[in-house]
């Protein structure tokens, strides 16, 4: 049995035509890999449903849309409340667990305190002409933002699809969100 390595030395050097074909192939693959596949994309996962935490995903979504981004916001768990037409108008602020609140936790935990702090915040929002959650959702939808309602959470909470704002996408799950994140230039979990 020969000790020569059978493969490498017996190969003839590739012909010019073979090399040219290989170069073409690689150039094509490179072009495909670096191609600008159109618009910039942003993917946000919204998981919180308190009044204060409803704002950041909506403000960023509408602003990104103004920049020309394709935006999807995947709403899961309490984040789903933001897309619920009725419940989104009554999002609450928690007075407990927030050290910036003007009352100590022991007082904040008293019955009715969340309502008080929520009213305070709603008044500030109105006085300051800050957009409401409803306005931000309607504006974002007009600008082409895709709001996705996590199907698992819809089932978990026992919501009906028609309880969400018109234009909200239902019937989507984590795999959809993951695909959006993989394709996106910006990914945020809020």
């Amino acid at each position: 049995m020969s000790t020569d390595t059978p493969d490498a030395p017996t190969d003839d050097p590739p012909s010019r035509a073979e090399l040219a074909a290989r170069v073409d192939e690689l150039e094509e693959a490179l072009a495909e890999a670096t191609a600008d596949d159109g618009d910039k994309k942003m993917s946000i996962i919204a998981t919180k449903g308190t009044l204060d935490m409803a704002y950041p995903p909506l403000i960023l979504a509408s602003t990104a849309a103004a920049f020309g981004y394709d935006v999807t916001v995947f709403h899961t768990f309490w984040g789903l409340e933001i897309l619920h037409e009725e419940r989104s108008k009554n999002l609450k602020l928690s007075s407990v667990g927030n050290p910036n609140m003007p009352v100590p936790n022991a007082v904040a935990a008293l019955p009715g305190m969340d309502r008080v702090t929520t009213k305070m915040m709603e008044k500030k929002i109105a006085d300051n002409d800050t957009a409401t959650i409803e306005e931000l959702i309607e504006t974002s939808l007009e600008m082409g933002v895709e709001f996705q309602a996590c199907q698992m959470t819809i089932d978990l909470m026992g919501y009906d699809e028609d309880e969400f704002y018109d234009g909200v996408t239902t019937g989507v799950g984590a795999a959809t969100a993951l695909q959006d994140m993989a394709d996106a230039d910006i990914q945020l979990l809020v």
């Binding site: 509408s62 849309a65 103004a66 300051n128 957009a131 931000l136 504006t139 600008m143």
Partner: peptide, 14 residues
């Protein structure tokens, strides 16, 4: 006038 973030940018885009 009167509108605050993000509305000036969003409405400018529109």
């Amino acid at each position: 006038k009167g509108a605050s973030c993000p509305m000036p940018v969003v409405k400018t885009k529109g």
